[in-house]
Every structure is written in C-alpha cells, then in structure tokens.
Nucleic acid binder design. Sequence first.
DNA 1: GTGGTCTAGACCACG
DNA 2: GTGGTCTAGACCACC
Lengths: 126, 126, 126, 126
Amino acid sequence: MISFDMFTATDGMPIYLQIILYIKRGIIAGTIVDGDELPSRRMLSAVLGVNPNTVQKAYKMLEDEGLIVSHSGAKSCVVLNEQTLRRVREDLLEGDAVQIVRAMKQMGLSKAEAVALLDKYWDWEE
Amino acid sequence: MISFDMFTATDGMPIYLQIILYIKRGIIAGTIVDGDELPSRRMLSAVLGVNPNTVQKAYKMLEDEGLIVSHSGAKSCVVLNEQTLRRVREDLLEGDAVQIVRAMKQMGLSKAEAVALLDKYWDWEE
Amino acid sequence: MISFDMFTATDGMPIYLQIILYIKRGIIAGTIVDGDELPSRRMLSAVLGVNPNTVQKAYKMLEDEGLIVSHSGAKSCVVLNEQTLRRVREDLLEGDAVQIVRAMKQMGLSKAEAVALLDKYWDWEE
Amino acid sequence: MISFDMFTATDGMPIYLQIILYIKRGIIAGTIVDGDELPSRRMLSAVLGVNPNTVQKAYKMLEDEGLIVSHSGAKSCVVLNEQTLRRVREDLLEGDAVQIVRAMKQMGLSKAEAVALLDKYWDWEE
DNA sequence: GTGGTCTAGACCACG
DNA sequence: GTGGTCTAGACCACC
C-alpha cells in the first residue's frame, strides 16, 4: 500500500494535478511498482484533507492514461510495463527540470548559485 | 520598461498568479528595480495573448501588496525598498527551493543526482 | 410468486426506485395481490442482474411504506387493504399521466396526435 | 430566447437529463429553432432553482451531441439542420411513446383505458 | 454579463 | 468497505 504522508499543498496548482504528480514521482522513484494497491478514495481524501471527489478525479485521469485500473467495489491497482514507466520517467524528469531551471533563471541565479540553493534546502525539514 | 518575452504557462496555475510570479522573479533578479514602469495593461495583455482584465487583476493584487502604485491615467510604477525586496526574495526563493527539493526527493533522487540533473538542463534551450 | 421478466431500465432513475415502481405497477394491474410472496432477494437480484443489496434496499423501502412485511428467515409478503391500494393507484396513475401529458405537450402535440401516437405504439413489440 | 416556465422536476431522473429532454422536446415542437439563443447558465439555473453547474452539464452534453454551440463570453446558440432535427425527432418520439406504453401496460390498462386516462389529464392544470 | 473548471458533499451500486 | 455519479458553490478567463 502506498503511503502519502509527504504530501502537502502547493501554490495554485489544482489539487488533483498534485496528486497525479505525487503518484508519478513515486513511480519514478520506484516506491510505487506494478501491482501496488492505491489507497482508497476515502482514505486518501481523509489523509490529505480534501474531498473524495478530488482524489476520484486524479485516479480517473491516471486510469485514462493507463497507469492504474479501477473496478467498482475493489481497490484500484497500479499497472506498469517497461514502456509506460519509461514514458512517465522521461516526461516528468524533463518537465520538472525545465521548469526548475526556468524559475531559477528568471530569478537571475547563476548555475553555481542554483546548486548552492539546492544544497542549502536539501536537508531542510519542515 | 519591463519586457515579458519569456513568459510561459505553468501547469494549472491561474494566469494572473503566473504574471505576479513572473514580476516577482524579475524583482529578485534585479531586472525590475524601484521606479520602473510596468507595461500598460493593454500592451501586456496583447503580448501575453490574454485578456486585459486578467492583467488588471494581477496589477491590482500587486498594488494591494504594496509592490506597485497606479495613478489613474498614468502608468503603474514599481515601488521597492530594502525591506519589501528582502521579503519578496525570501518568500519566493524559499518557496521555489522547497518545492524543487520535494519534487526531486519524491522522485527518489540523491542530492548528487539532483545537482547533476540541474547541471544537465541548465544550458538546455527549447 | 411474482415474476419480473419484463423489467427494463428507465432513464437515469436509480435501480431500487425502478424495482419499487415495477412492483407498484403490478399492484395496480392486479397481478400482485394481498398475501402474495415476493421473490427472494437473491433470486430477484439474479433475475435482474443487479446486486442483492439493491433489491434489499427496494424491499426495505416498501416495508417502511407498509406495502410488504418481512419475517426474518421467511419470505416477504405483500400486505394490501382497500385504502393503501387506492392510494398507490392514485399516486402512480396520476403521476404517470401528468408526466406523459407534459411530455407530449412539450413536443407540441395536439390531443388527437397524442392519442394517435399512443395507438400507433400500443401493439409495437421490440 | 427560449423560455423555461413549464419546467418542473420529475421523479428520480437526473436534473440535467430533464433539461436536455425539455430542450429536445422544444426542438421537436418547433418552439426552439436553428439560431435561437439559449438562456444563460445563471439565468436558467435561477429559474429552475438548481445549481449553474447542473445546467452547464446539460448544455455541455447538448454541445457534444452537436445541437448547440458555446463560446466563452458569448451566449450559447442552437444549431440545427434537417438531418439532426429528424434524428432528434425520431429518437424522442419513439422513446417517449415506448416508455409510456410500457408503463401503462404494466399497470394493466387496456388501450381504451389508456386513451381515457390521457383524455382525462390532458386539460388538467397544476 | 458570458462559459469553463475545481472543489465539496451526498447518494447509488457493488463486493 | 470499494468506485461512480449528481448536485452545489466558488473562482477563473473572456466579451
């Protein structure tokens, strides 16, 4: 069972997109693997403090994308093969990296300053 | 005059928040300084391809936050002192850094891998 | 024993309401009379291709309405007296008629056209 | 502009389906013709006493079906050609008639009784 | 003002 | 318990 304890709200990004992001990142990290059961809509919504419907929307989009399967009355399961895993990995890594670099450049940081910033906050705990 | 040529969409974030974010990053970068004139609402909306009302909303929130002043009939000007500049800087840098670190950790990257990723995409142009 | 072979879906109406409706129409038609045994929950659910819980819900509501009695371990029986029968009859006939008339009027039919339409489809078998 | 004063709630049928039905029946009746403007989401929702979102859903499905077109900021318009009009007409007339006949037969009415019922309630006003 | 979308809460059908 | 859907309310972007 996947745990969602690290999840926190972020900016103005819609919650359901954040949930999708979180799951995809877990897939990339290898903490979510083929056959894993997702937490139920109710449980996850309770943990995140959001409406079950918001989780439902995220799960639905993941299902449409072919990353999970849902059957009424049964838990939703992650279904991954080599190809989809690679696709998710490339999309997300590149997307995140590009966005991060753009943000730092807009703030006028040099590459060295960016690395220093990363280093500074890496072990920062909230 | 501030130029907005680099503007690009960011996930599901509302457009007016993206505009605010872009301006704040420019302030941090030093490309926007105290006394600068903001482009007119109609010009900026034309450049960004969005509705003038949307720009208006962003400017209004920046004004409420005390970062710009608008005189009716005249251009809007950026108003910065040491204190507000530092506040904006810390808010944004910290917020971005925390978000970046969380994303990379969720993907299971080590600090070294994160730095390598940053390095790889830094000079990447789209 | 009541038979349910004609049962078909009706728009977006919840299934348990359709079951209730079907039984009430049978009561009006006289095919279901005082003292009749209802089919068991599992048999009816098998015949209709729905979940036993759904049938259970319909029976429960009919029981609350006083139209049937259930003894644990025994079959459910229909309980009708003159008064309840008349009430059911009037409610349903009137409800259906009003709805039918409204539908036909909304489609711009005259009374004669409505009767003609009824006549045309009365002996129509699917 | 189409008026919705005759609209009333019906059974367990979802509200958005009722709205769709109402509009389609108006099309059949000829009271709604090609090029007509639909009432805005807010206005109609106020008249019907439902949430704007419910109307939105009905309009969206009608748009997907090709019966209306919507542009953000402008009113939604009905778009009809001979072919779609005929399709709507046949679908609805047949569907309504079949359902009406089935309901009446389930209640054990003869054709004559059905016609009499129709006649009785035709001039009935609520 | 307009339409579009996100979040929320309740209910239905299923195991 | 599970997932699916309908209704509700608020906000965003556009005219």
